[in-house]
Design a binder for these strands. Structure first.
Lengths: 198, 198
DNA sequence: TTACTGTTATGATTTGGGTCATAAAGTGCT
DNA sequence: AGCACTTTATGACCCAAATCATAACAGTAA
């Protein structure tokens, strides 16, 4: 989201983390701004019974975990690498200085937050009040449109596992599997070689 | 969120709406920045079966409905007055100019978005993976802490109706009523004269 | 007072998604 | 090739929350 040269210019370091490594945990104090140079990161929670909920998945170029920097609250979720990754990290103070000196970077941050708030709004309404099939379709369309930047007419291969879809929608794997089958039967998507296309 | 003098200085108008009046609808193009001078506003969705989901409730001093301004997308939900209200409205262009000329206002906008994203994260995880009683308690604590700015030790009177709690948590009124009773029995809150205290 | 509306309340019944069990297909590693 | 692990898949059963029905109470407008 923020120009990489700018990040380096303001003293960004690079953190190397392997798949499964934890960058920060729920409750930790936020001290750095993070942006993905390569790899992929998720933010998640576990409920009392140990069930995972994935807040979001962040890909190359995305920044994440800034809200706590702005509002001086601890992280509301864990940050975990889902692929081996390189992460730009820049200290809170340097980050604020960067925003102050570069209003255009500040604006792109704001736009980014607005974008994520928008996604959360859509998913919140889905999760709370729609049937599994509806939820899953909405999530897939969101990833197709926003993450992969494809048009509705394009053919999109869903790279999420059934388990990830479950954790993103608050459903169970079995329910996701069954719903996806039902959606295929209804013609909303196709399954080829166990992969979902939409 | 933004200083009222500043709003007026940049040509803000005031809109008078009565309880129940709709300010904008899901799908509308966002053209104005809104901030509450008096009254209260909610943003909501209706699912296919007509069940309401309340995204948030905004009180005096809060702004709302900005994300679509920043990302050029239509409103993801309706904006409806829940009390007779006076709303500052300022055109999109003037709003951006204001942010550009007043970086401190821009920062407070960013902080505000971060705050809301934080709330959405917490509630998303709650809604998707916790039991009714847990969800309700979290919501009440959020309102106590963030909307009413009270300390945990303070006594807080919940001004939300059971129906509103249901629509905010994605539950049904009956479930909310029964859960609140159960929570009282367990000593997590008290009910006096049908009002909930925490 | 009555009539009306919104909110809280409670019991009976139903059902959709969770849970549990089990297995097959695919993937990666030695 | 063999082994361990992950992902997808399916059937059977269960249960918590939704649904349906009904009513009492509070507030307020006529």
């Amino acid at each position: 989201m923020i120009d990489e040269n700018l990040l380096e210019q303001f003293g960004a370091g690079i953190i190397f983390i392997k798949k499964g490594d934890v960058l920060f945990e729920e409750g930790d104090t936020a001290k750095y701004f993070y942006q993905i140079k390569s790899g992929e990161v998720k933010m998640n929670n576990y409920n009392d019974e140990g069930k995972e909920f994935i807040q979001s998945i962040f890909a190359v170029g995305s920044c994440f975990g800034e809200p706590p920097l702005f509002i001086d609250k601890p992280y509301p979720a864990n940050g975990v690498a889902i692929l081996d990754s390189e992460i730009y990290a820049i200290a809170k103070e340097a980050f604020f200085k960067l925003l102050f000196v570069h209003p255009e970077a500040h604006l792109s941050m704001t736009v980014n937050l607005a974008q994520r708030l928008y996604f959360k709004s859509v998913m919140a309404s889905e999760i709370s009040s729609q049937e599994p099939e509806h939820r899953i379709l909405k999530l897939i369309d969101y990833f197709k449109e926003t993450v992969s930047k494809l048009k509705p007419a394009d053919r999109y291969k869903v790279e999420l596992t059934r388990q990830q879809i479950a954790d993103l929608t608050g459903l169970r794997v079995e329910t996701v599997i069954r719903s996806i089958k039902a959606l295929e039967k209804k013609g909303f998507l196709t399954i080829e070689d166990r992969k979902v296309y939409r």
